[in-house]
Amino acid sequence: TTVHLNGVTYTFPNPEEARKFVEKLAKTLNLKVEVHNGTYHIE
């Protein structure tokens, strides 16, 4: 599972880890999250 954040790409072997990371980040920084083909894009 891949996460794109400010031009940096993070790869998680575990989709659940990626989801938790994204949710925590989005909540902390009040960001918008979009998912395209299983890839998270955070703005």
Rank of each mutant, 00 (worst) to 15 (best):
N6C: 15
A18M: 04
Y10V: 12
V35R: 02
Y40R: 03
V22D: 00
L29R: 08
E16K: 07
A18S: 02
G38W: 02
V3D: 00
A18I: 04
T28D: 13
L31Q: 03
N30M: 04
N30C: 15
F12E: 00
T28F: 14
H41K: 03
Y40H: 04
L29C: 15
F21I: 02
N30F: 06
T28N: 13
L25Q: 01
V22A: 14
T28Q: 12
V33H: 01
H36W: 06
T28C: 15
T1G: 12
F12Q: 00
V22I: 11
H4N: 09
L5T: 03
T2K: 14
L25C: 14
A18D: 00
E34Y: 14
G38K: 02
T2E: 13
V3T: 01
N14H: 07
A18Y: 01
E43D: 06
A26S: 11
K20S: 09
T1N: 10
E43L: 14
V22C: 14
V8W: 13
T9F: 11
K20T: 08
N6S: 08
T9A: 11
L31H: 04
K32H: 10
G7A: 05
R19N: 05
L25M: 05
L29F: 06
K27N: 08
Y40L: 13
K24I: 13
L29Y: 10
T11I: 13
I42S: 03
N30S: 04
E43W: 15
A18N: 00
H41Y: 15
N6H: 13
E43V: 15
N14E: 06
N14Q: 05
K24F: 14
E23I: 08
V33P: 01
P13V: 09
E16T: 09
H4R: 11
T2P: 07
K32S: 06
L31P: 02
I42R: 01
K32Y: 07
N14S: 11
E16N: 09
V8S: 08
Y40T: 05
Y40I: 14
V22N: 00
K24A: 12
V33Q: 01
E16L: 08
Y10Q: 03
H36S: 05
T11S: 10
N37Y: 03
T11R: 12
K32R: 08
V8P: 01
L25W: 07
T2R: 14
N14F: 07
V35I: 13
V3G: 00
E16Q: 08
K20P: 00
G7D: 10
H41F: 15
H36F: 07
R19P: 00
G38I: 02
V8T: 09
N30L: 06
P15K: 09
E17N: 10
N37R: 02
T39C: 15
E17W: 12
K20C: 15
R19G: 05
Y40M: 11
N14C: 15
T39V: 15
G38D: 05
V3L: 04
A26D: 07
K32A: 04
E43P: 02
T9I: 14
K32L: 07
E16Y: 08
L31A: 11
N30Q: 10
T1F: 05
E23A: 07
K24S: 08
N30Y: 05
E34V: 14
E17M: 13
G7M: 06
A26N: 06
E23H: 06
L31E: 02
K27V: 05
T1V: 08
H41E: 08
A26Q: 11
F21Y: 05
K32C: 15
E43F: 15
L5I: 10
E16S: 08
E23D: 08
K27Y: 07
P15D: 12
N37H: 04
T9Y: 12
T2A: 12
V8A: 10
V8F: 12
K27M: 08
I42V: 13
T9C: 15
L29P: 07
A18E: 00
Y40N: 03
V22P: 00
T28H: 14
K27E: 12
T9D: 06
T39W: 11
H36E: 05
T28P: 01
Y10T: 04
V35H: 03
V35S: 03
H36V: 14
K27T: 05
T1Q: 06
K24L: 12
V8H: 11
K32N: 06
L31T: 05
F12D: 00
V3Y: 01
T28E: 13
L25R: 01
E34T: 14
G7L: 05
F21G: 00
E34C: 15
P15T: 07
T2M: 13
N37L: 04
F12P: 00
E17G: 08
V22W: 02
P13W: 10
T1S: 10
E34P: 00
P13S: 10
N37T: 02
I42H: 02
F12S: 00
K20W: 08
H41L: 10
H36Y: 09
N37C: 15
R19S: 06
T9P: 12
T2W: 11
N6Y: 12
L5C: 14
N14R: 05
T28R: 14
L5M: 12
P15Y: 07
A26Y: 04
T11F: 11
L5R: 02
N14M: 05
H4K: 11
I42M: 06
K20N: 10
V8N: 09
F21N: 00
P15L: 08
N6R: 08
G38A: 02
V35F: 14
F21Q: 01
V22T: 02
H36N: 04
E34K: 09
T9L: 13
T11Y: 11
A18V: 07
V3H: 01
E16W: 06
R19D: 05
N6L: 13
Y10A: 04
N30K: 07
P13R: 09
L31C: 15
E23K: 05
E23N: 05
H4D: 05
L31F: 06
A26F: 05
R19W: 13
H41P: 04
F21K: 00
E23Y: 11
L5K: 01
E16P: 03
I42P: 04
G7K: 09
L31I: 14
H4W: 12
Y10N: 02
L31M: 08
T39G: 12
N6T: 04
G38P: 02
E34F: 14
F12M: 01
N30V: 05
A26G: 05
